[in-house]
Design a protein around this nucleic acid. Structure first.
Lengths: 182, 182
DNA sequence: GAAAGAGTACCGTCTGGATGGTATAGTAAT
DNA sequence: ATTACTATACCATCCAGACGGTACTCTTTC
C-alpha cells in the first residue's frame, strides 16, 4: 500500500466541489474531473457515491480526533487541557480545514448515518471536557460557544469578524485558565 | 387573499420531507403528495423548486424575527433584553420549530443566496446584542453558546440532553442578569 | 528464464430511471 | 370571469452504477 495519495486527492476534489458548487453538484463525474481521473478510476477507489462521502467523513473525523488528542497530551498544564485543546484546534482550523465543512454537509445530505463517527467524537469530547478539572458547566458553555462560531461559518449563516473572533478566543482562554482545580 | 394556509401547508410538507427523508428526497412530486395536492397545484403556488425553498426560508426568517422582537419589547427590564430574547426564543424553539432546520438545510443545498434573509437577521441581532447595556463580549459568547446548541441539533451532530440543556440555560440567564449596566 | 497468471490502477461508454418543468383540458367556487 | 386548483401526459436532461477494456507490475510455474 505504497500510495494512498490518490484516494486523498479524490476526497479533496469532492470537498472542493461541495464547498464551491454545493451538494447537488457533487456528482461522480464532476468529482472525477476535478481530481483529474476518469469516472471508472474514481469508481475503482470509491465504488459508490455513498462510499465517497463516507470517505470524506471518516478522513476528517480521524484527523480532527488526532489533532485534539495531540494538543491535549502536549499541554503542560493538566487542568483544562481538553477544553483548551478543543478551543485551540477548532479556532485554528475553521479556515484551513474546509474539508470538515464539506464532508459534513455532504453526509447530512446523502445519508445521515454517515455522521456517526462525528457523533462519537462529540460524545467523547463532551465527556473529556466535563472531567477536565474545571467547572463542567462553564467548560461546556465554552465548547458550545466555539461550536457556535464554526457551525455558523460552516453553514454560511454568520461570519464573525477576525478581530472579534480573537477577542472571543482570548476571553474563552481566560475563562479556562482562571478556573481553580477542585 | 383570504386563504394562504394552503401555501403554508406546502411549506410544512416540504420541511417534513427534508427533516425526515433528507434534501435529496425533496422533489416536487413528493412535496405535492405530502401536502395532499397535485403537482400542478403545487406549481401554481410555487412555480419552481427554488421558489419553494425561498418560501421556506422567508417564512421562517420572518417568524423568528417577530418572536425575538416581541420578546425583547415585552421584557420589563431594559438591560440585556435582546440577549435574553435571543436565548429564550432559541432555547424554546429548538424542538418545536423543526421548520427552521429544514428550510436552512434546503436553502444551503439548493442555492446559498436564499440564506440572505437569515444572514441579515444575524447581523441585526449581533448589533442589538452588542448594544444591550451589558459586556458585549460576554453577550456575544452567550449568543454563540446558544447557537452551538441549536446548530449542532440542526446538523444532528450532537444532542445535548434535556437536563444539561436546562442547566446551561439557567447559567446563561444568570450571566445576563448579573451584568451591571455601564 | 520465459511464459502464464494474478492483482492493481486505472479509462471511457452505455443505459435505465428519476426529476424539473411545461402543457393542456377540465372542475368548482366566488 | 377569475382564482384555485385536479389530473395526466410529456419532454429533455442528468446521473449512478455497470461493464468491458487497457496497461503495468509482481509472482509463480515449468
Amino acid at each position: 500500500m505504497g500510495r494512498n495519495s490518490r484516494k486523498v486527492d479524490i476526497l479533496h476534489a469532492a470537498s472542493k466541489i461541495v464547498s464551491e458548487r454545493g451538494i447537488f453538484n457533487l456528482t461522480l463525474e464532476a468529482t472525477a474531473e476535478e481530481a483529474g481521473i476518469s469516472k471508472g478510476g474514481l469508481l475503482y477507489h470509491y465504488p459508490s457515491k455513498e462510499a465517497l462521502v463516507k470517505g470524506m467523513v471518516d478522513h476528517l473525523a480521524s484527523n480532527y480526533r488526532e489533532k485534539i488528542e495531540n494538543n491535549a497530551k502536549a499541554d503542560p498544564k493538566d487542568v483544562g487541557k481538553w477544553t483548551r485543546a478543543y478551543v485551540d484546534v477548532t479556532f485554528k482550523n475553521t479556515y484551513e480545514n474546509k474539508d470538515m465543512n464539506s464532508g459534513l454537509l455532504a453526509a447530512k445530505a446523502v445519508n445521515a448515518d454517515l455522521l456517526n463517527p462525528i457523533r462519537d467524537l462529540y460524545t467523547e469530547w463532551q465527556r473529556d471536557i466535563e472531567n477536565d478539572g474545571i467547572d463542567p458547566v462553564k467548560a461546556t458553555i465554552i465548547r458550545l460557544a466555539t461550536d457556535g462560531i464554526w457551525l455558523a461559518e460552516l453553514f454560511d449563516i454568520y461570519h464573525i469578524g477576525e478581530e472579534k473572533k480573537e477577542i472571543i478566543y482570548a476571553r474563552l482562554k481566560e475563562w479556562i485558565d482562571e478556573q481553580k482545580p477542585e
